[in-house]
């Protein structure tokens, strides 16, 4: 038996919205420690890693570790049936091999309870070992600013160059019709830390060129949290981390560009 109760369905709705553009189907792992998933896009260039710790749930029970395969588009549709402030219960029986994942949504005043279930599927997907890494540069910035920059530069080109130095981070793109760039200057944290402030921890300048279409997908996680951190080292995958308050994170990894 697994059973996880989230105080607000909206968090889970936002998580699925953040993942479904990049990933169509994924295995979800339930263990004593919580709920996690790792999945790559079909081209194996981008990867997402979700962690929801057991102690972030209102209640959490997992008698035996289970991996359940779901179609994220179907899950997204199902979650549209939940009110944002509904309490959400996810549960599955593993007595005879779970073939469905069940959801119940209870309104804040407990007057309405709805139940839905999602058929599970067998998914044969590659998973990878991601080592713990020290990065050369970590940019911590507003997630809405990140979304805006990706949207703005997508109107110019297909790739973005992210150049981090001690002074700041510059996002730039060029295309047939022209080019554009946005520079965010490093700000030391000051009193009343501005929500839009950008800070950069850096050992040495780092630059990466990345396809904007993947970053547009990653930006779908912005509604989950005010901040995103971008972790960069030359020639290794870039990691974008969106922390989900009190409960976990979504991390996206994107392979660097090939030098032709």
């Amino acid at each position: 038996m697994i059973e996880a109760v989230l105080a607000q369905a909206s968090i889970f709705k936002k998580i699925v919205e953040a993942l479904k553009e990049l990933i169509s189907e994924t295995n979800i792992d339930f263990s004593e420690a919580g709920i996690s998933l790792q999945a790559m896009d079909s081209s194996h260039i981008a990867l997402c890693n979700l962690l929801l710790r057991d102690d972030g749930f209102k209640s959490y029970r997992c008698d035996r570790a289970l991996t359940l395969g779901v179609n994220l588009n179907s899950l997204s549709k199902l979650l549209k049936c939940a009110g944002n402030d509904d309490e959400m219960r996810i549960f599955a029986n593993d007595d005879s091999g779970a073939d469905q994942l069940n959801f119940s949504f209870e309104s804040a005043n407990s007057e309405r309870v709805s139940e839905f279930s999602l058929k599970l599927m067998d998914i044969d997907a590659d998973s990878v070992d991601i080592p713990d890494m020290d990065y050369q540069a970590i940019i911590d910035m507003s997630s809405s600013e990140f979304s805006r920059i990706i949207r703005d530069l997508s109107s110019v080109g297909e790739a973005v160059s992210i150049d981090a130095t001690k002074q700041g981070v510059k996002f730039s793109s060029a295309g047939d019709a022209g080019k554009g760039s946005i520079l965010l200057k490093h700000q030391k944290s000051v009193d009343g830390d501005s929500a839009l402030a950008t800070s950069i921890e850096i050992n040495e300048p780092v630059s990466h060129s990345l396809a904007l279409k993947f970053l547009s997908s990653f930006a779908k996680a912005a509604p989950l949290t005010d901040r995103v951190s971008i972790h960069m080292t030359e020639d290794v995958p870039v990691m974008f981390e969106f922390k989900i308050s009190e409960i976990g994170h979504i991390r996206f990894y994107l392979a660097p560009q090939i030098d032709d």
């Binding site: 790559m40 081209s43 194996h44 260039i45 981008a46 990867l47 590659d126 998973s127 990878v128 070992d129 991601i130 080592p131 297909e158 790739a159 060129s209 990345l210 396809a211 290794v236 995958p237 990894y253 994107l254 392979a255 660097p256 560009q257 090939i258 032709d260």
Partner: peptide, 14 residues
């Protein structure tokens, strides 16, 4: 267009 390498060439398969 941007050519990017597979993540499998960076991270080992589990």
């Amino acid at each position: 267009a941007v050519n990017q390498r597979s993540l499998l060439s960076f991270f080992g398969k589990k």
